[in-house]
Write a protein that binds this DNA or RNA. Structure first.
Length: 998
RNA sequence: GCGUGCUUAGCUCAGUGGUAGAGCAUUUCCUUCACACGGAAGGGGUCGCAGGUUCAAAUCCUGCAGCGCGCACCA
C-alpha cells in the first residue's frame, strides 16, 4: 500500500479529475436518453470578462444542482456560453487601441476594420472565463457551448427582430431616450441608475412680455439648458399664474438673440406642481423627459392659439419646438449661444449662472440634493435626448405575469415575485437600438429614390428578395416622420402610376430575415443598412431556446426545454429574467424555466459591493490556488444563506479548506486502522483496482446484510448510523428547498461534530483493543458511513470526493453507470428506511443513549480542569453506574476521558476532595487527593448553583400559574415537570459536590 | 413617496409560539500514535426600541428608530 499525505493537497487532485471527467464525456448531455431531464442554462458571462466571486457563487450553486440531479438519475444538461456584451467589449477594445496609440477614435479604423479587431480580442480573451469555470469544477456540457454572436445565434436574433416587427411590436420613432454621452449611445431605462447628487437650485426671474414689470421666478437645477427652453409652464389651476397662460416671457439666454427670438409662451399643464419650487416650470423638451411630454401634450393647443396670437401681434417667430442645446458628447451646441457653445455641460452650468448674475436675473441659489440618472456602465450622468430609435412593445406580457403570480413558475426567495410583478405592471417600451458597432446589426435597409426611378432602383431588388417571405416594405415620404407599411406589389399596381413625375423623394425601407447573400444584394443595389446594433439583452433574452437549436424543433429542445432551474442575481431580474420569460412564451409557447433561484450579492467584509476601483474583489483563482476549488465552493456556500447578501471573508474559504482536510484525514484514519487484515488501501492511480477486501461499499440500494453484523453493533455504532440518517434527510430537504448554506451546515455538523469528534474517537477503543470481530464490524460501519458521506458531499466538494471515492475503493464494487467509473453517477444516498433500521436495531433511543454518554464524558473532562490536571496526564476515574455497564462501554469511556482507568464501583461513596458529575447513566468521580483549588471550585459551583436556582424559579413560576397548567397541551406540561425534576436533581448534586469540598 | 429586506454573542449569521444556537475570534490546557488546516474545557447575549395578542413571544400583530436594496420622482 502507499501512504497518503498528512494534509490534503488539492492541486495534485483537482486538475487530474477534471480532465478525467472531460475525457469520460461525463458532462455531455444525451438528448436521446430515457432518463428524466434536468437542465439549466448558464447566465452567460461577458465573453471578455474574468471570473468574479459572484460567478463563483452562481456557478457553484448550478454545479451543485446539476451534480445532485445526476446522482438522482436524471439526464443533465448544463448549457454554458458567453454573451458579447456590446458596450463593455467595444469600450474595452477601443480603449486598448487608443492606449497603444493606434487610433484616436474608432472612426480612424472604420466599422469593418474595428470589428475585426474586436473579434481578434474576443479570440484572445474570450476563453478565459470558461477556463476559470473549469477550475471551479463546473460540470457544464462544453460540447454545447454557445456565444450570442455565433452565426446560428445571430440568425435567431434577426429572425425574432423581423417577427416582432411584422407583428408591429417593434417600431421606430423619434423619442426621448437615455443618452450616454460617454458611450455615445442610447440606453434602456434599466441601464440607468439614479444617484443622489448634491448641487444647487437656482432661482431666476423672467419678465412677462405682455406685462412689463411683471416677473416670474423659475427654479431650476440645470440653468445651462435655459437656451433650450421652449416654454414656461404653470398649473392652470394655480391662481397665482393661471391668468398669464397664453402670454409670453423673455428667456434670458442666449443673451445675443434678438428679443423676438427669446420670447417663449406661458402654457398651462397639470403636470406642474404648484407646491414645488415657485410653481413655474421651464420647459426644455429636447433635454427632459417630463418636459417633452408636456411639449407633446400642449403642442397642438399652443400652435392653434399661437396662430391667432401671432396674427394679432406678429411677435412670435419661433413656435414651441424642441431646441437641442447639448450635443451628443455632452458639449453645448451653437444653439446654446456664444457664451456656452463648445463648453462641457457642467462647465456650461457655471457659465450660465454667471451670465444670469450679470443680467441681474439670478435671484438666489440654494444647496439642493436631487436624483440624477447615471449610465450604469460608464458611470456618468445620462442626458435625456431626443433621437430616432427602435423600440419594442413587449410581447406575451400577460402570460408572463400570470405564470409567476399563479406560482406556476417559482421564484426563490418568493419575494422577488412581487418585484417582478410590479415591474411588469408598469412595463414601458424597450429601446433596443444602440449606437455601437459590436453587436447584432439591425436587419433594416433603406434607399431613397424618386417615383420615376422606382423601376430601376427598387423593383429589381424586390424581385430577387421574393424568395424571402419575410421581406416587409415600408415607405416614408419626404421629411414626414410617418412611415407606412406597404405591400410592394400592390404599390406597383395601384400607387406608383399616380406618382409619375412627382419630385418628392420616397424612402423605401425593407425589413427582413435575410441571408448573407440577400444582405449583400441589398448593399450592392444602393440600399443602406441601419447602422445601429441591438441591445445585448435583445439577444440574451432568447438564451434558453436559441442555445438549443431553435427555430428547429431539435431533439435537444424536445428533451431539455423548458429548463428546470435558473440561477442568477436579482440585479438582472428585469434585464434578463423577465425578458426571457416573455420571449419563452412568445417563441416556445411556454415558460423557459420552472424555478428561478436568486442569489445574494457578494460584498466585502464591510458590506461594500465588490468593485475593481475599490480593489476589494479577490481573484477567485488566487483563492483556488491557495485553498483549493472545493474549499472555495464550500466556503462560499456556507456563507450564502438564501435571500441574503453575502459578506465575503477569506476565512470562509479557509474554513472550507480545513473541512476538506478533516475529511481527508478521517479517510486516512480509516485506511490506517484497516489496512492490516481487513481494510482497503488508498490508491494513487486513478482506476487501479482496490486490494482484496472482505468489506464492500454499501449503499441503501445495496443492503449490507452479511457485512455489518447487527448483534455486534455498539451504542456508538447505532448512534452514528442514526446521525447519518438524520444528516441525509436534512441535506436532502435543504437541497430541495435551495438552502445551500443549511445543507453545508448540516454536512459540517454531522461530519466534524458527530462523526469525527465522537464516533471516530470512540471507535479507537475498538481498534486499540483485541476483539477482532468487533474490529471488523466497526470497519464495516465506518465504510458504510464514509461511502454515504462522500457521496453526500460530492455536489459540494466534487474533487476531493472523487479522489476518495476511488482511493477508498468505494467505486470498485459499483456498476459502471452507478458510480463504478465516477462518483458523479453514484446514486444519491437515501435516508435509512424502516427495514434497514429494524434489521440493525437502530432504535431512536440509541440517539439519547449516545448523547448522554458523551455528555458524561464532557462533564468528566471538565473535572480535569477543575482539578487543575493537565490535558495529557492519565488519571483514574471511578464510575458508579445506574445499571450494568458493559465492559466495552467502560473501555470507550476510558478512552474518551483519556483516563488511566475507569473503575466501576457500584456502591462507591465519594470521600472529601472527590469531584463528581452525574448524568442519567450514573456518577463519575475523580478523587483529587488535594490537587484542587478549593476556593475556585467553590466559586464555580456556586455560580452554577445560582444558574440552576434561576432555572428552577422560572419553571416553578410557570407550573404555579393555574392558567398555564389548565391550558397548555399535556406534552408541554410534562416537559416542564420533567425539566423541573432534572434541575432539582442537578441542584442536589451541586450541593453534594459543594459539601464534598469541605 | 411606494415596495422590500435586515437589526440575536466581539464579528458573520442560523433560529416562524414552549430550556437562546453555529462558525470565527477570545481564555486556559494539550504537539497523545487521522488531522495544529488539529484536540479538550471554558467565558461571552435583558434577541434594535415601545406597545399589543397569548398560559407562554427572538418568533405573531401594531407603531417607532437605524441600516440596506428595488421602483418611481418635483423643475
Amino acid at each position: 500500500m502507499s501512504e497518503i499525505s498528512k494534509a490534503y493537497e488539492p492541486r495534485s487532485v483537482e486538475d487530474k479529475w477534471y480532465q478525467f471527467w472531460l475525457d469520460g464525456k461525463f458532462f455531455v448531455a444525451n438528448e436521446h436518453a430515457t432518463k428524466p431531464a434536468y437542465s439549466i442554462v448558464i447566465p452567460p458571462p461577458n465573453v471578455t470578462g474574468v471570473l468574479t466571486l459572484g460567478h463563483v457563487l452562481n456557478n457553484t450553486i448550478q454545479d451543485i444542482l446539476c451534480r445532485k440531479a445526476r446522482m438522482d438519475g436524471k439526464e443533465v444538461l448544463w448549457l454554458p456560453g458567453t454573451d458579447h456584451a456590446g458596450i463593455a467589449t467595444q469600450t474595452v477594445v477601443e480603449r486598448t487601441l487608443k492606449k497603444s496609440g493606434e487610433i484616436k477614435h474608432r472612426d480612424d479604423l472604420g466599422r469593418e476594420k474595428f470589428l475585426e479587431r474586436v473579434w481578434e480580442w474576443k479570440e484572445k480573451h474570450g476563453g478565459i472565463i470558461i477556463q476559470q469555470l473549469k477550475k471551479l469544477g463546473a460540470s457544464c456540457d462544453w460540447t454545447r457551448e454557445r456565444f450570442t454572436m455565433d452565426p446560428e445565434y445571430s440568425r435567431c436574433v434577426q429572425r425574432v427582430f423581423v417577427d416582432l416587427y411584422k407583428k408591429r411590436l417593434i417600431y421606430r420613432g423619434k423619442r426621448m431616450v437615455n443618452w450616454c454621452p460617454a458611450s455615445l449611445t442610447a440606453l434602456s431605462d434599466e441601464e440607468v441608475t439614479m444617484k443622489e447628487q448634491r448641487g444647487f437650485m437656482y432661482y431666476f426671474k423672467v419678465e412677462v412680455a405682455e406685462a412689463p414689470g411683471t416677473f416670474l421666478t423659475i427654479a431650476t437645477t440645470r440653468p445651462e439648458t435655459i437656451p433650450g427652453d421652449s416654454a414656461v409652464a404653470v398649473n392652470p389651476k394655480d391662481p397665482r399664474y393661471a391668468h398669464l397662460i397664453g402670454k409670453h416671457v423673455l428667456r434670458p439666454l442666449p443673451v445675443e438673440l434678438p428679443r423676438e427670438q427669446k420670447l417663449i409662451p406661458i402654457i398651462g399643464d397639470e403636470h406642474v406642481d404648484f407646491a414645488f419650487g415657485t410653481g413655474v416650470l421651464k420647459v426644455t423638451p429636447a433635454h427632459d423627459k417630463a418636459d417633452f411630454e408636456i411639449y407633446e401634450r400642449q403642442m397642438l393647443a399652443y400652435h392653434l392659439s399661437a396662430f391667432d396670437e401671432s396674427s394679432k401681434t406678429n411677435q412670435i417667430v419661433e413656435p414651441l419646438k424642441p431646441i437641442e442645446v447639448i450635443g451628443k458628447s455632452g458639449i453645448m451646441t451653437d444653439k446654446a449661444g456664444k457664451d456656452l457653445q463648445g463648453l462641457d455641460r457642467f462647465k456650461a452650468r457655471k457659465v450660465a449662472v454667471e451670465k444670469l448674475t450679470e443680467l441681474g436675473a439670478l435671484e438666489r441659489e440654494e444647496p439642493y440634493t436631487n436624483n440624477v440618472g447615471f449610465s450604469e456602465r460608464a458611470d456618468v450622468p445620462i442626458e435625456p435626448r431626443l433621437s430616432e430609435q427602435w423600440f419594442l412593445k413587449y410581447p406575451s406580457v400577460e402570460k408572463s405575469r400570470e405564470v409567476v403570480a399563479r406560482g406556476e413558475m417559482k421564484f426563490h426567495p418568493e419575494r422577488w415575485a412581487k418585484v417582478y410583478d410590479h415591474w411588469m405592471d408598469g412595463i414601458k417600451d424597450w429601446c433596443i437600438s444602440r449606437q455601437l458597432w459590436w453587436g447584432h446589426r439591425i436587419p433594416v435597409w433603406s434607399k431613397k429614390t424618386k417615383p420615376d426611378f422606382f423601376q430601376t432602383d427598387i423593383a429589381p431588388v424586390n424581385q430577387k428578395l421574393r424568395s424571402s417571405v419575410n421581406a416587409i416594405w415600408s415607405l416614408k415620404v419626404g421629411s414626414y416622420d410617418l412611415e407606412e407599411r406597404i405591400d410592394i406589389e400592390e404599390f406597383i399596381q395601384n400607387s406608383l402610376p399616380g406618382l409619375k413625375g412627382v419630385e418628392e423623394s420616397l424612402e423605401f425601407r425593407v425589413v427582413g430575415d435575410f441571408s448573407t447573400e440577400q444582405a449583400e444584394l441589398l448593399n450592392q443595389n444602393g440600399f443602406t443598412q441601419d447602422p445601429d446594433v441591438l441591445d445585448t439583452w435583445f439577444s440574451s433574452w432568447l438564451w434558453p431556446f436559441a442555445t438549443m437549436g431553435w427555430p428547429e424543433q431539435t431533439d435537444t429542445l424536445k428533451k431539455f426545454y423548458p429548463t428546470t432551474d435558473l440561477v442568477t442575481g436579482p440585479d438582472i431580474i428585469f434585464f434578463w429574467v423577465a425578458r426571457m420569460i416573455m420571449a419563452g412564451y412568445e417563441y416556445m409557447g411556454e415558460l423557459p424555466f420552472q424555478n428561478v433561484y436568486f442569489t445574494g450579492i457578494i460584498r466585502d467584509k464591510q458590506g461594500r459591493k465588490m468593485s475593481k476601483s475599490l480593489g476589494n474583489s479577490p481573484d477567485p483563482l488566487d483563492l483556488i490556488a491557495k485553498f483549493g476549488a472545493d474549499a472555495l465552493r464550500f466556503g462560499v456556500m456556507r456563507a450564502a444563506p438564501l435571500g441574503q447578501d453575502i459578506l465575503f471573508d477569506e476565512q470562509n474559504v479557509e474554513l472550507g479548506r480545513n473541512f476538506c482536510n478533516k475529511l481527508w484525514n478521517a479517510c486516512r484514519f480509516r485506511q490506517m486502522v484497516g489496512t492490516k487484515d481487513e481494510g482497503r488501501s488508498m490508491k494513487d492511480e486513478t482506476g487501479a483496482a482496490a486490494e482484496a477486501s472482505s468489506f464492500n461499499p454499501h449503499t441503501s440500494s445495496f443492503p449490507v446484510q452479511g457485512e455489518i453484523e447487527p448483534t455486534l453493533l455498539s451504542t456508538d455504532d447505532k448512534w452514528i448510523l442514526l446521525k447519518l440518517d438524520a444528516a441525509l434527510r436534512e441535506v436532502t430537504i435543504a437541497l430541495n428547498e435551495y438552502k445551500f448554506s443549511d445543507a453545508t451546515a448540516v454536512l459540517y455538523r454531522f461530519f466534524w461534530s458527530e462523526y469525527c469528534d465522537w464516533y471516530v474517537e470512540a471507535s479507537k477503543a475498538v481498534f486499540f483493543g483485541t476483539d477482532a470481530a468487533r474490529k471488523a464490524n466497526t470497519l464495516a460501519v465506518i465504510d458504510f458511513v464514509l461511502s454515504h458521506t462522500v457521496r453526500m458531499f460530492h455536489p459540494f466538494l466534487p474533487f476531493i470526493t472523487e479522489e476518495l471515492w476511488h482511493g477508498m475503493g468505494y467505486a470498485t464494487d459499483m456498476p459502471d453507470n452507478q458510480g463504478g467509473k465516477t462518483i458523479m453517477f453514484a446514486p444519491w444516498p437515501l435516508p435509512l428506511d424502516d427495514d434497514f433500521k429494524g434489521h440493525y436495531g437502530l432504535d431512536d433511543c440509541y440517539l439519547e443513549m449516545g448523547d448522554t454518554k458523551y455528555d458524561l464524558v464532557s462533564q468528566g473532562r471538565n473535572l480535569r480542569r477543575a482539578a487543575n490536571i493537565g490535558a495529557s496526564k492519565k488519571i483514574k476515574y471511578i464510575l458508579k453506574p445506574v445499571t450494568f455497564m458493559p465492559p466495552h462501554e467502560v473501555e470507550v469511556l476510558k478512552l474518551l476521558l483519556n483516563a488511566e482507568s475507569v473503575e466501576v464501583v457500584d456502591n462507591y461513596v465519594a470521600g472529601k476532595g472527590t469531584l463528581t458529575v452525574r448524568t442519567s447513566l450514573g456518577e463519575l468521580h475523580l478523587p483529587t487527593e488535594g490537587l484542587i483549588d478549593v476556593a475556585a471550585e467553590q466559586a464555580r459551583l456556586n455560580k452554577e448553583l445560582e444558574k440552576i436556582e434561576a432555572e428552577i424559579a422560572k419553571v416553578e413560576a410557570k407550573l404555579a400559574n393555574p392558567s398555564f397548567t389548565e391550558k397548555v397541551p399535556v406534552t408541554v406540561l410534562q416537559e416542564h415537570q420533567q425539566r423541573l425534576a432534572e434541575w432539582q436533581s442537578k441542584r442536589e448534586h451541586v450541593k453534594t459536590a459543594l459539601a464534598a469540598l469541605g
